[in-house]
Deep mutational scan, measured.
Amino acid sequence: GTEIELESKNGQREHYTATSEDEARKIIEKAVRRGIKRIELRGASEQLIRDMQEIAKQIGLQYRTDGSL
């Protein structure tokens, strides 16, 4: 699965493990709508990382991946 670590603007951290790319995408989209400061992805697919970079650029988000592409 993909591990997703979120940090909201007030510094609250949340951790999710998505079993599918679809689920990961839903978690990320929800977080973005809620207003999130930072997202870290571990074990994400190349496609998901590309999507994440696109989203991050659009809304000026900090993100990090573990680089295991």
Rank of each mutant, 00 (worst) to 15 (best):
G1E: 12
G1A: 13
G1R: 11
G1H: 12
G1K: 12
G1N: 13
T2G: 05
T2P: 10
E3M: 08
E3D: 10
E3W: 11
E3H: 12
E3Q: 10
I4Q: 01
I4F: 02
I4T: 01
E5Y: 14
E5M: 14
E5A: 10
L6R: 00
L6P: 01
L6M: 12
L6D: 01
L6T: 10
L6C: 08
L6E: 01
E7Y: 06
E7P: 01
E7M: 07
E7T: 11
E7R: 05
S8E: 12
S8G: 12
S8M: 14
S8P: 05
S8F: 14
K9H: 12
K9S: 13
K9N: 11
K9P: 11
K9D: 13
K9R: 10
N10K: 06
N10E: 13
N10S: 12
G11H: 03
G11K: 02
G11V: 01
G11D: 03
Q12R: 09
Q12F: 11
Q12Y: 09
Q12G: 12
Q12E: 14
Q12I: 10
Q12L: 11
R13A: 05
R13K: 13
R13L: 14
R13E: 05
E14A: 09
E14Q: 07
E14H: 09
E14P: 01
E14R: 06
E14L: 09
E14M: 08
H15A: 06
H15C: 13
H15E: 05
H15K: 12
H15G: 03
H15P: 01
Y16S: 02
Y16N: 01
Y16W: 10
Y16G: 02
Y16A: 03
Y16I: 11
Y16K: 03
Y16R: 04
Y16M: 06
T17A: 07
A18K: 03
A18V: 11
A18H: 06
T19S: 08
T19K: 09
T19R: 11
T19A: 12
T19N: 09
S20A: 04
S20G: 06
S20L: 03
S20K: 05
S20H: 06
E21C: 07
E21L: 11
E21S: 08
E21D: 14
E21V: 08
E21G: 05
D22Q: 11
D22R: 07
D22T: 09
D22E: 14
D22H: 06
D22G: 08
D22P: 07
E23D: 09
E23Q: 08
E23W: 04
E23L: 05
E23A: 06
E23H: 06
E23S: 04
E23M: 10
A24P: 00
A24T: 03
A24L: 08
A24W: 02
R25G: 01
R25T: 02
R25M: 07
K26A: 12
K26Y: 07
K26L: 12
K26N: 10
K26H: 09
K26C: 12
I27H: 02
I27C: 04
I28F: 15
I28N: 00
I28L: 13
I28M: 06
E29T: 06
E29S: 08
E29Y: 10
E29Q: 10
K30F: 09
K30M: 13
K30Q: 13
K30A: 14
K30G: 13
A31T: 02
A31S: 05
A31I: 09
A31Y: 03
A31R: 02
A31V: 08
A31P: 00
V32L: 14
V32Y: 04
V32G: 02
V32T: 04
V32S: 03
V32R: 02
R33D: 06
R33E: 13
R33F: 05
R34K: 13
R34M: 13
R34F: 03
R34Y: 03
R34D: 13
R34C: 13
G35Y: 02
G35K: 03
G35D: 09
G35T: 02
I36V: 12
I36Q: 01
I36E: 01
I36T: 04
I36L: 08
K37E: 08
K37Q: 12
K37Y: 04
K37A: 10
R38T: 10
R38Y: 14
R38G: 06
R38F: 14
R38A: 07
R38P: 01
I39Y: 00
I39S: 00
I39H: 00
I39N: 00
I39F: 02
I39R: 00
I39M: 06
I39G: 00
E40A: 13
E40M: 14
E40R: 11
E40H: 12
L41F: 05
L41W: 01
L41A: 01
L41T: 06
L41R: 00
L41D: 00
R42K: 11
R42P: 02
R42T: 07
R42D: 03
R42Q: 07
R42M: 11
G43V: 02
G43I: 01
G43M: 05
G43W: 06
G43L: 02
A44W: 03
A44G: 09
A44H: 03
A44C: 08
A44K: 01
A44M: 04
A44F: 06
S45Q: 02
S45V: 03
S45F: 05
E46F: 02
E46T: 08
E46A: 11
E46R: 06
E46G: 04
L48M: 05
L48S: 01
L48P: 00
L48K: 00
I49A: 08
I49P: 00
I49G: 03
I49N: 09
I49W: 06
R50A: 08
R50I: 10
R50Y: 10
R50D: 04
D51H: 14
D51Y: 15
D51T: 12
D51L: 14
M52K: 00
M52D: 00
Q53R: 11
E54M: 09
E54A: 09
E54S: 07
E54N: 07
E54I: 09
E54R: 08
I55L: 14
I55H: 03
I55N: 01
I55C: 13
I55G: 00
A56P: 01
A56M: 04
A56R: 02
A56F: 12
A56C: 10
A56W: 04
A56Y: 04
A56Q: 03
K57L: 14
K57S: 07
Q58Y: 03
Q58S: 12
Q58L: 12
Q58N: 08
I59F: 15
G60N: 11
G60L: 08
G60D: 14
G60W: 07
G60R: 04
L61T: 02
L61G: 05
L61M: 05
L61K: 04
Q62M: 07
Q62K: 09
Q62S: 05
Q62G: 04
Q62V: 10
Y63M: 15
Y63Q: 15
Y63I: 15
Y63E: 15
R64E: 15
R64I: 15
R64Y: 15
T65K: 06
T65C: 15
T65S: 14
T65A: 11
T65D: 15
T65Y: 05
T65I: 09
T65R: 02
T65V: 15
D66V: 06
D66A: 03
D66K: 02
D66G: 04
D66Q: 04
D66E: 06
G67V: 06
G67A: 06
G67F: 02
G67Y: 01
G67W: 00
G67S: 06
S68V: 08
S68P: 06
S68I: 12
L69Y: 11
L69E: 07
L69C: 14
L69K: 05
L69N: 07
L69D: 07
L69I: 10
